[in-house]
């Protein structure tokens, strides 16, 4: 009585495609950047800054990870991830030549193109710089389309700063890069303090700026407040949210934040849509 419905197999959205790890860059003690090429049967991926993929470690499991590479380079896929759990530890242990399962890209994106002509302020906390890097690359490729651009980046410790080798290039392209760390030893000559304190140092026109933020929720909450205090209205602020995800296509129910599905409605939200939700504990 069972019949095969060949017509719907093509819509199976849960099947990972094989990509080949071509390069593994150790960024910090527990953060790795994986560069990968499409494996047999996988097509190059067109994505927009801020989108994520589900990355699969063979036999271990799958996790949502934002893309950290340049959206203009479709042939390669770059992800930066921290080894914190079972799956991310397995992914961070991959070697060049290993296969990795990829499905995506999923979710909303930084509305960077829609905000051309404005000043841009990027607020990143810790690993949160990774999902913002595609937006930075987009700005670098289209620098004349934007006014002042400021990257305000906080990490816990100096040796946990991501992509320090790129800061000079970003500065040369006219991006103000301000760094702070929560804890530093005597060798650190830069700022110490939470990233929120950098906002007043940002060189951007408060009423003509759009802000993109990614980091711990508590950081984004306080940073949003500080931006608002300084005159950046919430509707010009965008945040990238995170929750447990299994399907990434709005069907498994795991990533709900109030009425929002982080996977399909986000992960990037205009702040007014999630601002109230971010204040509710254990939501």
């Amino acid at each position: 009585m069972a019949s095969k419905a060949a017509d719907v197999i093509g819509t199976q959205p849960l099947l990972p495609q094989p990509w080949v790890v071509s390069e593994v860059t150790r960024e910090t003690d527990d953060v790795v950047t994986l560069t990968m090429d499409p494996g047999s049967g996988a097509a190059p991926m067109v994505f927009r800054p801020g989108q994520f993929n589900m990355l699969y470690a063979f036999g271990v499991g799958e996790v949502p990870i934002s893309i950290s590479g340049d959206p203009a380079h479709e042939a390669q896929l770059i992800h930066t991830l921290r080894a914190v759990g079972f799956v991310t530890r397995a992914l961070c242990a991959l070697q060049p030549g290993d296969l990795i399962g990829v499905r995506g890209p999923y979710g909303s994106h930084w509305p960077i193109e829609q905000h051309a002509g404005r000043d841009i302020v990027l607020v990143a906390g810790g690993i949160g710089l990774a999902p913002l890097r595609p937006a930075i690359y987009h700005i670098l490729s289209h620098r004349d389309r934007y006014g002042e651009v400021a990257l305000l980046y906080g990490a816990r410790k100096p040796d946990e700063l991501l992509f320090p080798d790129e800061f000079d290039a970003w500065r040369k392209a006219g991006i103000q890069v301000e760094i702070t760390v929560d804890n530093a030893d005597a060798c650190w000559e830069g700022r110490v303090g939470v990233v929120t304190t950098l906002i007043r140092h940002g060189r951007f026109e408060r009423t003509a700026a759009s802000a993109f933020m990614c980091g711990p929720e508590v950081m984004m909450r306080f940073a949003a407040q500080e931006l608002e205090n300084q005159g950046v209205t919430p509707d010009k602020v965008f945040v990238s949210m995170e929750r447990n995800m299994k399907c990434a296509i709005g069907l498994c129910g795991h990533c709900q934040l109030g009425p929002e599905f982080i996977c399909t409605d986000g992960a990037v939200f205009a702040l007014p849509r999630v601002q109230r939700l971010m204040t509710i504990r254990e939501l």
Partner: peptide
């Protein structure tokens, strides 16, 4: 949802057919 068989540097994936019970 699916099965994967690792064979050297390749993965062979078996997708279960969509079984339609009437």
């Amino acid at each position: 949802l699916w099965q994967l068989q690792r064979a050297g540097a390749k993965w062979e994936r078996t997708d279960p057919p969509v079984e339609v019970q009437k």
